[in-house]
Amino acid sequence: MNSLVQPPAAATAAGAASRGATGQPTQQYLLFTLGDETFALDIRPVREIIQFSALTVVPLMPDFVRGVINLRGAVVPVIDLQSRFGRRRAEMGKKTSIIIFDVGPPSDRVEMGVLVDAVSKVVDLGAADIEPPPQFGATIAREFIHGLGKVESEFIVILEPERTLNIDDMVALTERHHVH
């Protein structure tokens, strides 16, 4: 209905690891912006991307939990990555989108929406294009960073999905939020 970008057919688990021009195996990453910074995430767990319309706030939850949306009859939580990284909450803009991910172990997969300011494009990156996370100078905590990807002579932070979208971490945070 309001899907902006359906992940390309090649983005399925098998097809994602295609071969780049140089012949080395590559991986597809989804680029999006938070504030004025661009981040990348492995595209494989991405289910779909929808335009932000309205969400229902759940009271007494930490800031990074923005609320819930109705995704074709399922109630899906929406996370504010900006806030999760310890920054200010994202402002709603014209291009604000929600990326729907499949998170959690295969036995207990759940859908989770991530609020981003804009979704820009999908890029192919080979292992040679990715550098390890910097020791210092990063704008977000190092645990969230998988590496730095070189896209058109620019370095982009590739997020570590295991940490960034870890539902157990988030549950623990909400527990702590409720204690005080």
Binding site: A54, L55, T56, V58, P59, L60, M61, V65, V68, I69, N70, G73, A74, V75, V76, P77, V110, M112, I167, M170, V171, T174, E175, H178
Partner: peptide
């Protein structure tokens, strides 16, 4: 009634959610 999921298991005062005819989610 639609369950709210794991992330909201600690939330107080809310037992679940429901999707209204308009598509909105009500708690």
């Amino acid at each position: 009634i639609k369950p709210l999921g794991r992330l909201f298991k600690n939330v107080r005062g809310i037992s679940g959610s429901s999707i209204l005819g308009s598509g909105e989610v009500a708690l």
